[in-house]
């Protein structure tokens, strides 16, 4: 039995250059082939505009490929997002429920975790106040605390975002590291090669919307560094 979670064969994604019913296309992903195994920790490197974020959105099931094939095992894939459209007039508690539902949780699952979210976000009495009264840092902490409660089969991370003050940054980074080392399948996009070398067991190098090289961390990062000159 194969233990693959996702398999992409020559996948391409095109965007309309302008907002029209029909018109010129721009292929953000040209030709990407990739196989993701259960428990794999894949890092993605490449220059700006190489298609890394687009690829993550394909893996998350947000974007449908315009060409090529994608096969999925019965596994949930979730892009780590910090603020899924909070409603300013609603309390932190109601926003946490709304956000959890949007991330695919059932209501009773969220209810069971509200205390943990409240605790982790360090909001105190503000949890039952409208989000409109929050500082930026408080909004981000709430978003992170909700996102942390969802355990997808495949966790997709677009840059490890530093959230809140120094103390909360340390706490959130640690939480993500724990998640990654707990055996979750992870795809991590980052410009920080040291972090990729630290967290991942394989790397994909992308260039101009194509998967150029995929393999062991040392090999791919060395080739990537050489190409950068």
């Amino acid at each position: 039995m194969s233990d693959f979670v996702l398999r992409l064969e020559r996948v391409g994604v095109a965007f309309d250059v302008r907002r029209r019913l029909r018109g010129e296309k721009h292929w953000a992903l040209q030709d990407v082939s990739l196989e993701l195994r259960r428990g794999q920790r894949l890092g993605i490197v490449g220059r700006n505009g190489a298609g890394k974020s687009t690829l993550l959105r394909v893996l998350a099931g947000i974007l449908r490929p315009d060409r090529g094939r994608i096969a999925r095992a019965d596994a949930s894939c979730q892009l780590l997002s910090l603020s899924l459209g909070f409603v300013p007039h609603l309390s932190g508690r109601d926003n946490a429920i709304l956000c959890g539902l949007r991330l695919g949780l059932r209501r009773r699952e969220i209810d069971a975790r509200l205390a943990a979210i409240h605790d982790y976000a360090e909001l105190g009495d503000f949890f039952d106040q409208p989000v409109a009264s929050y500082s930026n840092g408080m909004v981000l902490r709430l978003g992170f605390s909700v996102a942390l409660q969802v355990q997808p089969d495949v966790l997709l991370v677009d840059e490890l975002l530093a959230v809140g003050d120094a103390e909360f940054q340390r706490k959130s980074a640690q939480a993500i590291h724990e998640r990654i080392h707990a055996g979750t399948t992870v795809v991590l996009v980052s410009h920080d090669e040291d972090r990729i070398a630290d967290l991942c067991d394989s790397v994909l190098w992308m260039e101009y919307g194509r998967s150029l090289l995929v393999g062991r961390v040392d090999d791919v990062l060395a080739a990537y560094a050489a190409a950068q000159g």
């Binding site: 949930s76 429920i97 709304l98 539902l101 695919g104 949780l105 059932r106 699952e109 355990q151």
Partner: peptide, 24 residues
Amino acid sequence: MGYARAASRRGPRMRLHFLELLWF
């Protein structure tokens, strides 16, 4: 594991989830 599983992609669970999301 102490986390909530994200919803699977198909089936009755998905439909119930849609209704819960719609209602809230």
